[in-house]
Design a protein around this nucleic acid. Structure first.
Length: 478
RNA sequence: GGGCCGUUAGCUCAGCUGGUAGAGCACCGGCCUUUUAAGCCGGGAGUCGCAGGUUCGAAUCCUGCACGGCUCACCA
């Protein structure tokens, strides 16, 4: 803080006065006997009984020799009444309280003239002096930049934001409940990886001094989880951060929470059902119904979700046939639709651009897009009756991609060929050779599912941007 | 990276075709022993995002930059 605000100076003066009175402004603990809402919801039980409550001062109305404040705790707010006749010399502490201070109060529960359930303070304990004034009580913090940079101000002044991140936690807990009930084992795999893999993305690079070697923050945990299937687990999942050194926008944060699930003896169709069931489970958990509101629309999550093949979807939303075109023809057609495709070396990547531009925004109701071109999907099995495609789906809700899944490729020689092919096309400098070695020992048929947790939370909680559901989203330095 | 928009007191915001910065909350002082967006009286608080330019004069017009938002492009 460069220049001291006069309000900060005033608070520091009060702090010195309190110290002079023998008050410790930063004591160690307080034994609460009841939360604000408990008292208000069970008034008959608490009436005229002594309670100890604590929290942060949110509003204050002092009248000379009496006064009211509202304190906020983890559950809600409750009013406190201070009266000179009751507190006597302790009333001088009340006069030095500011909005934002934490206090503990002991006293009897009563109703005021206007009927509000209130604690009549007999003891007052300062629990922490705030030296900076809080945001404005009525409007809270609105400035988006301040909300993200100083999230604590957003949380302290906008209680719906606190509620939102609680619901985020419920969703993640719900995912664990759902998978644990079905016999999945939660595991942890390396975030620091010597070779990155499992996705196409630029990694964050770091340097391991003792080993004198570059390491990478993982872009995906896919290859490690499959090693666990090879090791003999039949159902595993991991929830954790991935890191991708790419742009930031409404649906991308460089550091994001992903979940991957692998199930032996299953294929991508099984993963579709698993994902449908999981999302429905979560919606029921938070809303009690199989329906959500997103971006002003009501979206039904009822099974079965729409299945549409990748090329069908492209045809339907562009009016053009893309299947079977050469690289040059694909490029030409994409350019005709107004896309820039100069830097794309692979046909599949051009199609991806077309898909994102024309198809994704249309996929509002939940949809599984299935059967992708093979050249952009090196980790999936060829489609059983159409080897030009792979058994892969992406799930979309509200126009946002929320999941990606494969019938996992478990043929070690085929996997090795595909990795070598990527090296030749200079798509990658190196690949995870130990993963291929692991496949040589045999991996059962396996279905794998990756879910962007932040995006899923964003959809389920009707947030307009991924930043609204990440506590500390990435921003440039101030 | 392109386009559009924004940045004024701690917070929420006004500030017109350029004339020297305002309100509410918050803060300080006074009165007030059941108030609740407490009230009444008085007061203080600003590098108008930063740097240039135009002008007698710039929060206001112009240029550049920074940060943020939306959007397009990029991006598994």
């Amino acid at each position: 803080m460069e220049k001291e605000l006069d309000q900060v100076r005033a608070r520091k003066e009060k702090l010195e006065k309190l110290k002079g009175m023998g008050v410790n402004p930063y004591p160690y603990s307080f034994k609460r006997t009841a939360y604000s809402t408990e008292i208000k919801e069970n008034y008959e039980e608490f009436e005229d009984k002594k309670v100890k409550v604590c929290g942060r001062i949110k509003t204050r109305r002092l009248h000379g020799k009496a006064g009211f404040v509202h304190i906020e705790d983890d559950k809600g707010e409750i009013q406190i009444y201070f009266k000179y006749d009751t507190l006597r010399e302790k009333y001088s502490i009340v006069k030095l309280l500011d909005l934002g201070d934490f206090i503990g109060v002991e006293g009897k529960v009563f109703r005021t003239k206007t009927g509000e359930i209130t604690v009549w303070a007999e003891e007052i304990t300062l629990l922490s002096k705030a030296l900076h004034p809080p945001p404005e009580k009525w409007h809270g913090i609105k400035d988006v930049e301040t909300r993200y940079r100083q999230r604590y101000l957003d949380l302290m002044s906008n209680k719906e934001i606190r509620g939102l991140f609680r619901r985020r936690a419920e969703i993640i807990k719900g995912i664990r409940e759902f998978l644990d009930e079905r016999g999945f084992v939660e595991v942890e795999t390396p975030i620091l990886q010597p070779v990155y893999g499992g996705a196409f993305a630029t990694p964050f690079t770091t340097y391991y001094i003792k080993l004198k070697k570059n390491f990478y923050l993982r872009i995906s945990d896919e290859l490690y989880l499959k090693r666990l299937i090879i090791g003999g687990y039949e159902r595993v999942y991991e929830i954790g951060k991935n890191f991708r050194n790419e742009g930031i926008d409404r649906t991308h944060n460089p550091e994001f929470t992903a979940m991957e699930v692998y199930q032996a003896y299953a294929d991508y169709r099984d993963m579709m059902e698993l994902f449908e069931d999981m999302v429905i489970y979560l919606a029921r958990k938070i809303y009690g119904k199989e329906e959500i509101q997103y971006d002003g629309k009501t979206i039904s999550l009822k099974k079965p979700w729409r299945r549409i093949s990748y090329f069908e979807a492209l045809k339907k939303y562009t009016g053009e046939e893309w299947r079977g075109l050469s690289f040059e023809e694909t490029k030409k057609l994409a350019e005709k639709l107004g896309l820039e495709v100069e830097e794309k070396r692979i046909k599949g990547k051009i199609l991806e651009s077309v898909f994102e531009r024309f198809v994704e925004p249309e996929l509002i109701e939940p949809a599984f897009v299935v059967d992708y071109p093979a050249d952009i999907t090196p980790l999936a099995k060829n489609k059983r009756d159409d080897p030009g495609l792979v058994e892969r789906f992406e799930a979309f809700i509200g126009g946002v991609e929320v999941a990606n899944a494969y019938s996992e490729l478990n043929d070690p020689e085929e996997q090795e060929r595909r990795f070598e092919e990527q090296l030749k096309l200079k798509e990658r400098e190196e690949y995870d050779r130990d993963f291929v070695r692991a496949l040589y020992y045999g991996m059962p048929p396996t279905g794998g599912l990756g879910v962007g947790i932040d995006r899923l939370v964003m959809i389920l909680l009707n947030a307009s941007s991924i930043r609204e559901v990440i506590l500390f989203p990435q921003l440039r330095e101030e």
